Amino acid sequence: MSESSARHLRPVPPTGLPEPLHQQIEHVPLRRHKWQVVPSDLTSSAASRSFVRETCARWPVPEPYEFLAVQIAAELTANAVEHGKGNGPVHISLILDADLVILTVTNSGTTATDIQAHRPEADAESGRGLLMVDHLATDWGWYRTSTGGTAVWAELALPPATEAVTDRPQTETPR
């Protein structure tokens, strides 16, 4: 196995963050964090796209990074629903930390054993999603949660102009 494909199999949270992310996030010095729980059904990908689109629009996430985050979220959510087999809701976490967006999608399923991007047969009807995530994301991987579920995360590196994320007012007043 090549080093590039092995990195996708590491069962650790992104950038060393503890899991479950939404319960322990207050201990990590992040600029922005938002999460949502969606049902594990056919509406999940649409709800995920809306959540990520609306959140990125409120945060200083420029296009086309917002578009990329939405596409990745939809794919990871669809996978979470399909492979979670309806065993509980899907958790979507979105983090903005200076020049990085981290998206994590978690399900309650126990079927994941070896998650990796691969090229499907030309006539296969599915199996291209993680290949797309691999090409769109700066990095991605997965880990098993303490409750037996699976969390798949993806990182998007933002351009340097986004580093100025602060809680300052949008406009400066003259002195």
Rank of each mutant, 00 (worst) to 15 (best):
K34E: 12
L30H: 04
H33Q: 05
Y65G: 07
K34N: 04
E75Y: 05
P169M: 11
A46D: 00
E66H: 06
A151N: 08
E66Y: 03
S2Q: 06
D139G: 04
A164P: 00
G88H: 03
D114H: 10
V70K: 08
R144Q: 11
I92H: 03
L96T: 03
I95V: 14
T106W: 00
P159W: 09
A47T: 10
A154T: 01
P62R: 00
T138E: 09
K85C: 10
V152I: 15
A151Q: 09
S2T: 13
T147W: 05
R10H: 06
E82Q: 13
V101A: 06
I102Y: 03
W142S: 14
R175S: 08
E26N: 12
T43I: 12
T138K: 02
A47E: 15
P62F: 02
A117V: 12
P169V: 01
V28S: 02
A112Q: 02
Y65E: 12
G148I: 13
R10F: 04
S108A: 15
E125S: 06
F67M: 08
D167E: 13
P18Q: 13
H22L: 08
P62D: 03
D134C: 07
R168A: 02
S108W: 01
M132V: 15
R168G: 00
P18F: 09
G88S: 13
L30S: 04
T104E: 09
S126Y: 10
V152Q: 07
E19D: 12
G148Q: 14
L130H: 07
L17Y: 08
D123E: 07
R32K: 07
P89K: 15
S5N: 11
R31L: 01
D97P: 01
R49D: 02
W140H: 07
W140Y: 11
W142H: 14
E3I: 09
E163C: 08
T111Y: 05
L21S: 07
H118D: 05
T55M: 02
R49Y: 09
S93F: 00
E75H: 10
M1V: 02
P64A: 15
D97R: 07
E75P: 04
T43P: 01
G141E: 05
S2D: 15
F51A: 03
V90W: 00
R49I: 06
L158E: 12
T113F: 14
P11I: 00
E75Q: 11
V37Y: 04
H33G: 03
P169Y: 10
Q24Y: 14
Q24P: 01
H27I: 06
P39A: 07
A80W: 08
Q23V: 11
E19Y: 05
L42N: 05
G141M: 05
S126G: 08
A117P: 15
S4D: 13
P14M: 05
N87W: 00
